[in-house]
Design a protein around this nucleic acid. Structure first.
Length: 152
DNA sequence: GCCAACGTTGGC
DNA sequence: GCCAACGTTGGC
């Protein structure tokens, strides 16, 4: 069992969108490191911290879980999609993604609060210049986040 | 809108 | 394989 933090712009897909849909395909990842996490390291049932980015109040907005193995991201072959990749060929797809299932919509654990919490200081997403949209979370960090989310 | 940080591209 | 140029991310 692994844990992850996954960034989403709420304008595109918010935690409430996920709650309504139940499950969403995590399409649009176009970074090799993030893709490799999904392809090589994610397992069914892995815990996901759902993070809102590029918005007025960035932070963790809910909990989710990995609900599929990695499979081909169809948007890479769609010229009308913002995620279209002309260099990716259908016989050797470059981009894959997993599905993510909603678990809980929590209070917002803001980026500010995350930075101020000593027990979260080790989180990869807080590293200087970190832009990765998917980062591993340790069991200790996961527990610490849950404790904060469910407190006051 | 700014800009620091980082990833990717492509010429050599 | 190097590295300059360029593009993107994402907080502020």
């Amino acid at each position: 069992m692994n844990y992850w933090l996954m960034k989403s712009e709420p304008d595109e897909a918010s935690i409430l969108d996920l709650q309504r849909a139940g499950t969403l395909p995590w399409t649009g990842v176009r970074n090799y490191q993030a893709r490799n996490f999904m392809r090589d390291d994610m397992q069914l049932g892995d815990g996901v911290l759902f993070y809102h980015s590029s918005c007025p109040e960035p932070g963790i907005a809910g909990l989710a879980e990995v609900s599929s193995a990695a499979y081909t991201d169809a948007t890479q072959f769609d010229p009308a999609s913002p995620y279209f990749d002309a260099k990716s060929k259908p016989d050797t797809p470059r981009w894959v993604h997993v599905d993510v299932r909603w678990r809980e919509t929590t209070r917002l654990l803001s980026l500010k609060e995350m930075r101020e919490a000593p027990e979260l200081a080790s989180m990869r997403v807080l590293e200087r210049g970190s832009r990765l949209s998917i980062t591993p979370v340790t069991p200790a960090e996961w527990q610490a986040v849950l404790k904060r989310l469910h407190a006051a």
